[in-house]
Write a protein that binds this DNA or RNA. Structure first.
Lengths: 331, 331
DNA sequence: TTGTAAGCGTTATCAA
DNA sequence: TTGATAACGCTTACAA
């Protein structure tokens, strides 16, 4: 981390250009010369300075990612998919968590300056900033946000799945519903789910907000809801909120799905393990991250220059928490 | 992301040195000159190139972190603590996940070349590589590994807490124990926990391995164990394994803690929500990350140059899963 | 096949 | 108070 290409060149008795060529395999180098160079490199334990390389190449070989938080499996899973593919493509991943942070815009702009492209989760960055980044020419993939000009967007399908879920529940014969974890922002995933569900259930479903989409918040909101009036089915904005709802029901001595049905969204690991196992909509989280990394790579390398808006398909996963339903097969 | 300091200088009618000074407040600049410069900066939307700055300053203003995986709350929490403090200190965080990766050593060395210092989780990097990094002069903080020369190490206390836990369980009157999630490596956290527990319980506790420390693996191993012979108490290597054990017990129709007691380690969020709530040892995960970031900063800035080996204290959290115990207060 | 030298975009020293 | 100019460590035409 200290020896430079000059020292290698001197030791090998060649010019720095030759060292560079020998090392990167760019341009011709006589076999004997290469030998000498490699030997010198070995002896001096030389590694090209990333900064020097990047400055000369005009690229960071790094991607950024901006998320609100890392609590819960969703962001984590997406991040893992992203990092894996980025790494495969020879790019490091620089992270930025915005929750509870001040001067978020500055942090994001700073991040943009140290990478070749950015993955941004819908909620993590304010709209005007996104627009500014686009204007600045930052390669951008935005997850779970309505298509916007100048950037790729990527999300899982919500509306149709939400309808399918609602229809499934209606098929159980339920008539009074609540949507727990009502949308906090319009146009995001949860908003789409809510709209989809409501488009089927209409006035039969009420929206119940939670502070955040967490087990804790789901628990609190569900307990309050169940104490006050008892819907027959609670559709939750995501699995964590649903897990909270299950806990609340248990605390109140209510049977799920006997007294109240509960559904989630995402199909996180814990959904399968919950008691009762959670009926949910599976969202391909890792793939979301992987696709984002590839999309960014296309944008950065210039293989593609027009934004693309991709929607990944989801899958309704029927388990025990929505009640016995003869026509469906359990997973 | 494109305009350079030269263009700003030209527009402001000054030299690049003056622009630099005006922007960083290093060295004197006449008020009027500063005005002109700032105006030009504004008009051109100039942001200094991170690469240029870093090359000149000789620092990346970035930290790295190497973890095996991000599954489960442990790594996530530590990472969040780390990123938060690093960000506070003006450093970005570059991540690297090693699980399932080939050429891990190269990836880590590459990472080392793009940051000023590295946080490495014990399992994520092989011993010889750690030694090599130290030799190369990489600033290093290693989490959950025995103290080694040339690097800071940081971990939570394990042995004493394990003993306290074991004694607590013995106080319940249990006589046949199993340690689920037996250590896969020696000298790591789980190994210390196992040794601590065994030092109290001796031959009364048997070690039962799991492939990984996950809910799934805990479930599988616990089911096999409980079907075959039924210990009175299962001490698990961490909370996730313990959650798996709870599920296994439930599937087998066993009551916890009536038929078998179960304990975890870490006190992740889900431990509190589990049914029964999990008796566990709380480990300050965020703080671990935060401390790592500060330690690294000290090493990088040179405020401190001798390695330090820190051990954070933990807390026994008694909940329902270990059985009724009149002398203890529940959380 | 190899070397010279011009970038890449800053910071900071040293004169003026 | 300001401006040349030399680093910083590399890549890559262009010449030789």
């Amino acid at each position: 981390m200290d020896v430079t290409i000059y020292e290698v060149a001197k030791r090998a008795g060649v010019s720095i250009a030759t060292v560079s060529r020998a090392l990167r395999g760019t341009g011709p180098v006589a076999a004997k010369t290469r030998e000498k160079v490699l030997k010198a490199v070995e002896e001096l334990n030389f590694t090209p300075s990333r900064l020097g390389v990047s400055l000369a190449e005009g690229r960071h070989a790094a991607n950024g990612v901006v998320f609100p938080d890392l609590a819960g499996p969703y962001y984590t899973e997406v991040l893992l998919g992203y990092e894996e593919v980025a790494s495969e493509l020879g790019r490091s991943v620089v992270i930025l968590s915005t929750k509870g942070r001040t001067r978020v815009n500055d942090l994001i702009k700073d991040l943009a300056g140290r990478v070749d492209g950015l993955l941004v989760f819908g909620h993590a960055a304010p709209d005007p900033l996104i627009a500014e980044l686009v204007r600045l020419g930052v390669r951008l993939v935005v997850i779970s946000r309505d298509p916007l000009p100048g950037a790729d967007t990527l999300r899982s399908e919500n509306t149709a799945s939400a309808r399918a879920l609602a229809e499934h529940l209606a098929g159980h014969g339920y008539e009074r519903f609540a949507f727990l974890g009502a949308p906090l922002t319009s146009g995001d995933d949860v908003d789409e789910r809510w709209r989809g569900v409501r488009s089927v259930l209409g006035g039969a479903i009420e929206a119940v907000a939670t502070r955040e989409y967490t087990v804790e918040c789901g628990f609190d909101a569900a307990r309050a809801l169940l104490k006050d009036r008892r819907p027959e089915a609670i559709v939750c904005s995501d699995d964590e909120v649903a897990l909270g709802a299950l806990l609340a029901a248990e605390e109140l001595g209510l049977d799920v799905p006997g007294d109240v049905a509960v559904t989630g969204w995402d199909d996180i690991m814990a959904a399968r393990h919950a008691r009762p196992a959670l009926t949910t909509v599976r969202q391909p989280m890792r793939e979301l991250g992987a696709r984002a990394a590839r999309a960014l790579d296309e944008l950065i390398t210039g293989v593609r220059d027009t934004p693309r808006h991709l929607i990944l398909t989801t899958e309704l996963v029927v388990r025990a928490s929505c009640g016995p339903h003869p026509q469906e097969v359990r997973t």
